[in-house]
Amino acid sequence: MSDFPVTVFHNPACGTSRNVVAAVREAGLEPEVVEYLKAGWTRAQLEDLLARMGGARPREILRERGTPAAELGLLGEDVSDDTLLEAMVAHPILVDRPMVATPLGVVLARPSERVFEVLDRRPGSFTKEDGEVVEL
């Protein structure tokens, strides 16, 4: 379809993540889909994604709901970036999704239409799986 590379760090059980993959395809691009719960993360990979998000901090991509974040003591503001990154590598579910990486940058695509911030094209509109129409 295109030589514009798009990588979606995806959880197929997540509706927002499914919407992002569909939105990329609707824009005429075929993403590389990485099921990060299976593939896991490396520290270097997370550090690179955070840097490409404009120097974001690990807390900005920490998923709390449905994860062991509280049980691991990760919710306090005093928890270091190093500790968060180590936990994210050990427990991939701690990284919020979907994250999308392209030559234009990286976004945490919540809501799903944030994906269009890093695509080189977009459709005129996009219909999410729940029927919501997003005009672009």
Rank of each mutant, 00 (worst) to 15 (best):
D3S: 15
P5H: 14
P5M: 10
P5D: 11
P5L: 12
V6H: 10
F9R: 04
F9V: 03
N11F: 13
P12T: 13
A13G: 12
A13T: 15
C14N: 14
G15H: 14
T16K: 10
S17Y: 13
N19A: 14
V20W: 04
A22V: 06
A22W: 05
A23I: 03
V24Q: 11
V24M: 09
R25P: 09
A27W: 13
G28E: 15
G28M: 14
G28L: 13
L29T: 11
E30P: 15
P31Y: 14
V33Y: 12
V34C: 06
V34L: 09
E35C: 06
Y36I: 01
Y36H: 06
L37M: 08
L37H: 04
K38F: 01
G40M: 03
G40A: 02
W41Q: 02
T42W: 02
T42P: 12
R43M: 02
A44K: 15
A44I: 08
Q45P: 00
L46R: 00
E47A: 08
E47V: 04
L49Y: 07
L50T: 04
A51V: 03
A51R: 11
R52I: 04
R52S: 02
G55C: 07
A56T: 06
R59N: 13
R59I: 12
R59M: 09
E60H: 10
I61E: 01
I61Q: 01
L62C: 04
R63W: 01
G66K: 07
T67F: 03
T67L: 02
T67S: 03
T67M: 03
A69W: 01
A69G: 00
A69D: 00
A70T: 05
L72F: 02
L72Y: 01
L74C: 05
L75Y: 05
D78W: 08
D78P: 09
D78K: 09
D78A: 15
V79G: 09
S80Y: 13
S80M: 11
D81G: 10
D81N: 12
D82E: 15
L84Q: 06
L84E: 08
L85Y: 01
L85D: 00
A87C: 10
M88V: 04
M88E: 00
V89C: 08
V89P: 11
V89N: 07
A90K: 13
A90S: 12
H91M: 00
P92D: 01
I93S: 10
I93N: 07
L94K: 06
R97H: 04
R97G: 02
P98Y: 09
M99W: 01
T102C: 08
T102H: 08
L104G: 03
L104A: 11
L104Q: 08
G105I: 02
V107F: 11
L108T: 03
A109F: 05
A109T: 06
S112N: 08
S112Q: 06
E113Q: 15
E113N: 14
R114E: 11
V115P: 09
V115A: 08
F116H: 07
F116S: 07
F116Q: 09
E117F: 11
L119Q: 09
D120Y: 14
D120W: 15
R121I: 10
R121Q: 13
P123D: 10
F126R: 03
F126L: 08
T127C: 02
T127L: 00
D130V: 06
G131D: 05
G131V: 03
E132F: 05
E132N: 06
